[in-house]
């Protein structure tokens, strides 16, 4: 009887020590689920979801504080991927957070710009260059099309222009064929 209890206690101690060691040694930094969600989000950093950036939104989804249908730039495809990852039901994009739009870049009308630097401060990805009382311009390649620079501009000189298709970005269409008319 005593031997059995001692053996069981011994095993429990050893296993407890192993588990305790493992939880310290192999501790996972951060939440891997947040990273996976963040990888699906489009990284527009537009804040349309109600969170200050894509990662905070990913954290909120992982914590169950946000729905998966709050990201307009990610669109329907993004929602489907999130639903797949999290095992949740697909939901159409929530209307209060915006609508899915074709990808666009911001363009500054350089003749109107007064050089107030407000848009530079608003840009989440530092894609605007300029200095106080100097003309500003947008690095189109880095612009995510988040539209956050539109509101602060006091002279309304920023507009969104849809990205035109070029031969390099052109995609073959899904093959569609007329079904033969029944005689």
């Amino acid at each position: 009887m005593l031997t059995a209890i001692l053996i069981m206690t011994g095993i429990a101690l050893v296993l407890g020590a192993v588990l305790g060691f493992a939880s310290i040694k192999f501790k996972v930094e951060g939440d891997p689920l947040v990273d996976q969600i963040d990888a699906i989000l489009p990284q527009t950093q537009c804040g349309q979801c109600g969170f200050p950036g894509c990662r905070p939104y990913a954290t909120a989804i992982a914590g169950g504080e946000a729905e998966i249908n709050q990201c307009p730039p990610g669109g329907e495809e993004g929602i489907r991927k999130l639903a797949d990852l999290l095992g949740r039901e697909f939901k159409p994009l929530s209307e209060e957070h915006g609508v899915e739009k074709p990808k666009a870049v911001a363009v500054i009308d350089e003749a109107t710009c007064i050089g107030c630097t407000l848009c530079i401060q608003a840009c989440p990805v530092d894609a605007i260059v300029g200095a106080a009382k100097q003309m500003h311009t947008i690095i189109a390649a880095d612009c995510t099309g988040c539209e956050l620079c539109l509101a602060p501009c006091p002279v309304d000189c920023i507009s969104m222009e849809p990205i035109a298709e070029t031969v390099d970005t052109w995609k073959w269409r899904y093959p569609v064929f007329a079904i033969k008319q029944a005689a």
Partner: peptide, 18 residues
């Protein structure tokens, strides 16, 4: 793949700005 690259670059730039 192009979109993924653009998103990764945007994430880096956003984190750097913060």
């Amino acid at each position: 793949e192009r979109e993924k690259e653009a998103a990764d670059a945007a994430r880096d730039r956003f984190e750097f700005k913060n």
